[in-house]
Design a protein around this nucleic acid. Structure first.
Length: 306
DNA sequence: AAGACGAAAGTGGTTGA
DNA sequence: TCAACAACTTTCGTCTT
């Protein structure tokens, strides 16, 4: 959750008013809109918890973040307001604020329009669900409002937001895949990803190797049995703390490799390495650890003889 | 001949002084 | 801010099937 502003940056007074309904934070003494298009953190309009309906606060269609301004816009005052102002000083201030607000909001809108198109493109390339795209769009919007795009390419922030959204929804894509889809170098995506999650205080659980299994397995045409076995192996590995500190894709790949040996559906290290985006060497290292620590040697030998 | 294995050197990121 | 460090990669030679 974001910090609330205490003083008006324009006039320094402390008469900050947060209008939840309009989604704006403004200064009552000079009228500056400090922040608009706030994110509504209140109750969702859907409510599956119980039937009382008391917590169902919002009605109507949910606003969407994949629409560039969520169908809402703001403007500072109108000319009618202008004649209520007395002094020359106030009038000048009025115009200045109006002008700046206009510039800022149109800039943001232009940016979002382009960025969200890019986001949808990359999202559909990666076959991401609508939910994930929404989440990514929300993250991106926040990033723009906080001015985090400055000094970074828009595309890389889009990619970072998508990556973060994937992680939150536990449908991880690797940085390599994200890079391929967006045309941004993976280290750049990693950097912006880390930057925006830190700045926006989004905390993300370290990704779970098991989340990768099904995708890798289907890329390798492995049976469901092999897949579930791989997940079991991962669980055992996690219990003896083999997984912490290691790259999740490497572990997932090794577990899948071992499992493929046990189920006599052998894939070469090369093949597994390619779909997982790691090298054979990493698979070998993880594989050795798994075999040794989990005492799987027997099982592998057994199925070899068949 | 292809795949598996392992050693050695290099890379990018994290951490702690 | 810099150096130490762990994880991972690249490269390459050797062994196994």
């Amino acid at each position: 959750m974001r910090k609330s502003i205490k003083e008006c940056p324009e006039c320094g007074s402390t008469t900050i008013f947060r209008d939840e309904e309009k989604g704006e934070t403004l200064c009552k003494s000079c009228g500056l809109v400090i922040e608009d298009k706030m994110v509504d953190f209140s109750q969702e309009w859907r409510d599956f918890e119980d039937d009382r309906g008391g917590s169902r606060r919002r009605t109507g269609a949910p606003s969407t973040y994949t629409q560039f301004d969520q169908g809402l816009g703001t403007e500072v005052g109108t000319t009618a307001d202008f004649y209520k102002l007395g002094s020359e000083k106030d009038k000048n201030k009025f115009f200045r604020l109006r002008k700046w607000h206009y510039r800022i909001s149109t800039a943001i809108e232009r940016n979002l329009k382009v960025a969200l198109a890019e986001l949808k493109r990359v999202g559909s390339f990666l076959k991401l669900s609508k939910n994930v795209e929404e989440e990514a769009a929300r993250i991106y919007t926040l990033a723009v409002q906080k001015g985090l795009v400055r000094g970074r390419s828009m595309e890389s922030v889009v990619a970072g937001a998508l990556y973060a959204a994937c992680r939150r929804h536990e449908v991880p894509r690797t940085l390599d895949e994200m890079g391929e889809a967006s045309g941004i170098e993976k280290k750049e995506i990693g950097r912006t990803y880390r930057f925006i999650t830190r700045e926006l205080e989004i905390n993300i659980l370290p990704s779970n190797p098991a989340d990768y299994i099904s995708r890798f397995a289907s890329a390798l045409n492995l049976s469901a049995d092999t897949q579930t076995r791989a997940v079991e192996i991962l669980e055992q590995a996690r219990d003896i703390e083999l997984t912490s500190g290691r790259g999740p894709t490497g572990i997932a790949a090794a577990a899948l490799y071992v499992s493929s040996l046990i189920h006599a559906e052998k894939r070469t290290q090369r093949e597994v390495a390619d779909v997982a985006g790691v090298t054979e060497v990493t698979i070998r290292n993880r594989y050795k650890e798994l075999i040794k620590k989990l005492k799987l040697t027997k099982e592998v030998e057994k199925s070899k003889k068949k």
